[in-house]
Amino acid sequence: MLDTVIQQLLNAAQLGAVYALIALGYTMVYGTIRLINFAHGDIFMLGGYIGFLLVTAVSGMPLVVMMPLAMLLTALVGMLIERVAYRRLRNAQRMSLVITALGVGIFLENLVRLLVGPQARQLPAQLPNGVVELFNGVVVTEDKILIIFISLALMVILWLFVHRTLMGTAMRAVADNKDAVQLMGINLNMVIAVTFAIGSALAAAGGIFFGQAYSIDPYMGIDLGWKAFIAAVIGGIGSIEGAVLGSFLLAGVEVLTVAYLSSNMKNGIAFGLLILLLLLRPNGIMGRPELKKV
């Protein structure tokens, strides 16, 4: 009994970690340019594929090389998308940006489908998958522990970056008052590009972990992207802590629903939770009411 509960909690933590790695990109981009980047789920997918292509191209490339490289390449793609598709529209109607983001997402899905094919693929298992005994008879697989651990480490690094460096301070400043930022000598375009780069790199890490734990396909970003977006909204979009909190909460609800109620009810409960929470707290758990400028 205890064993099953712990297994389920670990499953939830693993799924929550992947959600969080995606949700952070949603929340950071929203924070800086008030865009719900609907292509972000597809960046996550692309990260998984870039990882897949790297290990396929250079067989035996270890994960410690493949993952940072895939994160870097995905970060470059994220910056490219911002530069090509979003920057010119930054001062246009909000709807134009959102539609563009949806279009970029569909483009990425079909590009990958065209280049690599529609079938689901498995990333070669690169994480050790032995088992560790926690205590009397409760065993967990090493890969699960590593995925959770590395994800949490990435989140801690992000938090430190945002709160302890000048670039991080600039990112928060852009989120706070975009008009005043440039008059502090801060290059707004640069800060926004860095935001996209970091969000994309984290999503790539999520994509690789997801491919290790499950499989990758060109449309995996749709479902996972929506879930991560919901997690970010539950946590309070714009808030980094909120995105992480919302992700683990959502994953917990989903995994426990599947385990103890029914897998058919998973999405119903997840979306129900979103609606309920937004009725109670329209700005999410950590969100603060939007300040209206007079």
């Binding site: 000048l166 670039m167 400043a173 706070d176 008052n177 005043a180 000598g185 801060i186 290059n187 603060r288």
Partner: peptide, 24 residues
């Protein structure tokens, strides 16, 4: 600015730090 434009939700400390951005 005539209407003060601080980074309202950030601390006083972080507000000052933004000014050092390009000299990190």
């Amino acid at each position: 600015f005539q209407n003060i434009r601080l980074f309202n939700r950030m601390t006083v400390w972080d507000n000052i730090r933004t000014a050092f951005h390009d000299r990190s």
